[in-house]
Design a binder for these strands. Structure first.
Ligand SMILES: Nc1ncnc2c1ncn2[C@H]1C[C@H](O)[C@@H](COP(=O)(O)OP(=O)(O)OP(=O)(O)O)O1
Ligand SMILES: Nc1ncnc2c1ncn2[C@H]1C[C@H](O)[C@@H](COP(=O)(O)OP(=O)(O)OP(=O)(O)O)O1
Ligand SMILES: [Mg+2]
Ligand SMILES: [Mg+2]
Ligand SMILES: [Mg+2]
Ligand SMILES: [Mg+2]
Lengths: 559, 559
DNA sequence: CTACATAGG
DNA sequence: TACTCCTATGTAG
DNA sequence: ACCCATAGC
DNA sequence: TACTGCTATGGGT
């Protein structure tokens, strides 16, 4: 299991089955695996309410999930502290409201499951089986990927630059929120996304360091410069991680070092992996030598598996996912679904409670039900995961994105962009925004508008620096209750056009005014539908085909 | 051909081909059928502009299309008159603007065609072929359908009630618009949806009679009462047409009249059809005897074909689509696509200009291209048409409607509801509205609001009578330029709640105010998202599943 | 398009 | 003393 | 959700 | 004298 979040309802670990338990011509539900799996955690129907401990609520918090370096943590204890520090707060209440919505979703899924006939599943089976064949046929395992992820990045930079921190548990952030912690702190269960005041409760001697983003950006650049020698086209997933294709580097190394004996395909792959392991070790050594920062790495035949592997031997370690297809598959199937990028705390709970799915193997066993219950996009991604078919395919043209509507909220997020397209996934950013929390303070209308203008001004400055303008302005508001709202509008002339943010504020003010008065804890502004700034405001070609003109400029105006 | 609308670009009638002309690995376009078919009507590139006659514009008007009883009309002459009476008018200009948008769509389709590779089509072929197999396998031809459609219904009622009209060409409607005409008038090309003043030009002796809707409704009821004896569950497609399943009636008749010799399936079907013909003749005789109104009928193994057949021998005739699958298919394939319900003047032109498709046979020949170019829903419907698979399938549960986005506007409308579901397609109306044209008149702001209130009041009255309330209010506006706009809003409390329309007006006023001032020729109000009026405003079940609560009541409100 | 929810660093 | 800030994506209405 | 376009009687 | 009124559906944004 990937997390201690689920104290009660354990899954039905009945291993590999090629068919879900469906009574022919009958209905799902009743004694089915899914039902059993959920009846414990969804206590609605229980006559006796067992007294709850903190672990019953762990699924409400991202930071209750285990991160690298937290293996030996006493989860029960941590969950208890977290619960006690949280319960009754507005934040906790909001978390509970969200959870209730998730439970409703689960009930809906189970209801659909209960009324699913064998005859409904038949065509699904056909489609899924065909897709499996197709995916396996098109699966591309020709490359070797490496994902490098820095160890407790922000914290590592701070510790490098301040030797007095050595040997102490420390966190980057403040009493409100922690960005990351060093591995000493993690032994206390203290990690990213955890509020500092809870962390301090768990570890009173925890040292807090304020974040210095510019330093991290610079360190990141230094690391990347080294990595680029191994793959000039690497894709930076974030400041602290890089997706690399090291095939070429490895092959060159082999070509220059070893005799070109005629090996069969498997032997060649084995040799490549062997070399890859040494290459990556050397690369990591080079990084730590030059930056005094350690990193970890994963090596595999798909980006996704490399990403997962990079977390396995943290800190300062690396992990190879076996290259043999069967072994690779075994590695994959044994993963808890929570390890799969895109499956977060909510999707994990939904899949477990509605379908009894805890591992990728379960996902494979229940692939037909997934295809039936989830949206096409979601089911497609999950199926690819079970088959290690997450590498970009080289199909000729664009697949028309058939979006099939099914349940009310996304169970699984997008196929993470890092896996989606090839190396040239760089089509620039899609939005830029700025938001600010002011906890209890500002609530007079005047203050709120002042805040809004301030955010607009600062954001505009950043936009101007980066040469970004866009046609969509979004106002984000978080109430004191932690409920989040957004209000957006399409603007005919892209903003911001001036660095003081007055034009941006014009629109933001409008959006804000409609909702006033109101008690807020956060306000944010975002600009999206970005366009190339070298853009002539109106350039309509009569055919209407050459789209220098975006649709939202075409808005018909009565009058 | 179904219409004289297309003077120039005739289709490439090269008969049955199992594969479209696609150069392997190459591109479409160039000398392809589609290109040739369009180059004449899309004159953009022509150096020499041929002088245009009325028929070049016939495709702009619904009423230029041939209706029953117009076989011998001199289309050239009619089109010329229509053109001369229309050209330069605001209405004509708007028609031209719409046509231009359609042409743009066509260009887009042809562009996509031109960049379509053989490799793009391969998977499409696979999918389509699989679907064909499936559709044919599931095709249900077990029933005999009959569609009854009254002959020039409104006109027939008026002529029955006013003997002085006998022998004269007449129209129901006025100089602005004609609802329908008798068959004498049709000889002049005068028909439904034609403006009266044009009709009078075509036929100066034309007699105009104002419409009396109540009379038609009553006559309709009388007819239906008779028809119900032959199928108690008939589906009324409109005041003047009924979709019937006469299988049971026919079988009973056979059982009581004839010896139950053991016939093979074909012989039994043949006998059923024979009996059906007599039954329908008797039914029609009964209708005319009791109502002094004649009707026509179509008999076939699918509702769609019965509907098409009902128009074949008008007036006062009937037509049987051969029951033999091959003959039925031949009948179908020879149809001009314009005869297919759902394919109107625009879809006809698009399919012809972009793909060279004029008949259902062409549709079959180009089925792969259709699947590639059109949306899934559209391609699916068209494919069903070519295979006579338009009857409701008996699959157990709902197919998740996968909406694939492709081109910007709908090429083919919905699968007409009459064919979609079985007999119990009666789930009540979805909307109710009222609109009014006031040509040049009212334009002062005051007048417009008065008009709005008046419409709201009258509409509310009708709603109260019918016990209808809804959560969506739509304002419709037609400018003097004939451009149409709609503005709608979701209202938290369903309207109207009072018969004087004040609450409805409250919302309509709001919508109208936003667009004022403005020169209009029409204003309309519609209420939709109807709910059961026996509805307690708030009735939330904690599970959230039992949906007495519609989503738009859940709208979160900041503040 | 607009609003919301999920996800990950 | 009291639950971040940033970007991207899927889904429903 | 909102708005536009098509379709048929 | 001068291009309807009504309902439904698909699809883009
Ligand atoms: N929830 C968060 N909020 C703000 N910043 C974050 C958050 N999570 C991570 N970061 C920042 C700080 C991290 O050092 C940096 C890289 O994240 P990540 O790689 O996930 O963890 P990490 O590098 O701190 O530890 P690890 O050794 O597990 O990789 O991104
Ligand atoms: N465009 C229209 N506008 C208003 N009313 C119409 C329109 N078209 C038809 N109607 C009304 C009047 C018709 O008598 C009635 C039935 O239509 P329909 O069956 O298509 O034609 P019809 O019954 O007048 O002649 P036919 O003999 O061809 O069936 O509906
Ligand atoms: Mg890291
Ligand atoms: Mg990282
Ligand atoms: Mg009729
Ligand atoms: Mg009719």
């Amino acid at each position: 299991m990937s997390t201690a979040a689920h104290g009660a309802g354990e899954p039905c670990g009945d291993g590999l089955r090629e068919r879900e338990t469906v009574r022919t011509g009958g209905r799902h539900g009743g004694e089915s695996a899914a039902s059993r799996a959920t009846s414990a955690s969804t206590k609605d129907e229980d006559a006796v309410e067992a007294p709850r401990n903190g672990s019953d609520f762990a699924h409400l918090f991202v930071f209750a999930n285990e991160k690298a370096g937290m293996k030996k943590v006493d989860k029960e204890h941590v969950n208890q502290i977290v619960f006690e520090m949280s319960k009754g707060s507005e934040h906790f209440k909001e978390a509970q409201r969200r959870d209730e919505r998730t439970q409703a979703e689960v009930r809906k899924l189970r209801a659909k499951l209960a009324t699913t006939l064998e005859s409904d599943l038949a065509p699904v089976r056909h489609r899924v089986d065909a897709k499996v064949t197709k995916l396996l046929r098109e699966r591309d395992l020709s490359r070797i990927y490496c994902v490098v992820d820095m160890d407790c990045f922000f914290a590592a930079v701070e510790m490098r630059d301040d030797p007095s921190l050595a040997g102490k548990p420390m966190a980057v952030g403040g009493l409100s929120m922690i960005s990351t912690t060093n591995y000493l702190a993690r032994e206390y269960g203290v990690r990213s996304a955890m509020p500092g005041f809870i962390a301090r409760k768990l570890c009173p001697e925890l040292v807090f360091v304020k974040s210095n983003f510019d330093k991290y950006r610079q360190a990141s650049q230094e690391v990347r410069d080294i990595l680029k020698k191994y793959d000039p086209k690497l894709h930076a997933g974030s400041l602290d991680e890089a997706y690399m294709d090291i095939t070429d580097f490895v092959d060159v190394k082999i070509a220059t070092e070893q005799a070109g004996a005629n090996l069969d395909a498997d032997a060649q792959t084995a040799r490549r992996f062997h070399v890859a392991e040494r290459v990556v070790q050397a690369m990591r050594d080079e990084v730590s030598a030059h930056t005094r920062l350690t990193c970890s790495a994963g090596i595999a035949r798909t980006r996704m598996l490399a990403k997962i592997a990079s977390d396995r031997n943290k800190p300062n370690g690396q992990c190879v996912v076996p290259w043999q297809p069967e072994k690779m598959l075994r590695f994959t199937r044994e993963l808890a679904i929570r390890k799969v990028p895109g499956i977060g705390k909510v999707a994990e709970k939904k899949l477990k409670d509605a379908l009894g799915v805890a591992t990728v193997r379960d996902l494979w066993d229940k692939r037909y039900l997934c295809a039936h219950l989830l949206s096409a996009v979601q089911a497609d991604y999950l199926l690819r995961v079970t088959l290690c078919c997450t590498n970009p395919s080289v199909s000729s043209s664009q697949a028309s994105s058939s979006s099939a509507a099914s349940s009310s909220a996304a169970a699984v997020s997008a196929l993470p962009s890092a896996f989606g397209q090839g190396e040239d996934n760089q089509r620039g950013r899609k939005s830029i925004g700025m938001e600010r929390t002011f906890s209890q303070g500002a609530s007079s209308v005047q203050e709120l508008f002042d805040t809004c203008l301030d955010i607009c001004a600062r954001l505009s400055r950043r936009c101007v620096e980066k040469q970004l303008i866009g046609h969509c302005v979004t106002l984000k508001i978080k109430k004191s209750s932690f409920e989040v709202f957004t209000r957006q509008t399409i603007v005919t002339n892209a903003v911001p056009r001036c660095a003081d943010g007055t034009d941006l504020f014009e629109h933001a003010r409008e959006l804000l005014a409609r909702e006033m008065p109101c008690r807020l804890r956060l306000m944010g502004i975002k600009v999206s539908k970005l366009i190339d700034p070298s853009h002539a405001p109106v350039k309509i070609v009569s055919s209407g085909v050459l789209h220098a003109v975006k649709p939202w400029m075409m808005r018909r105006t009565l009058k």
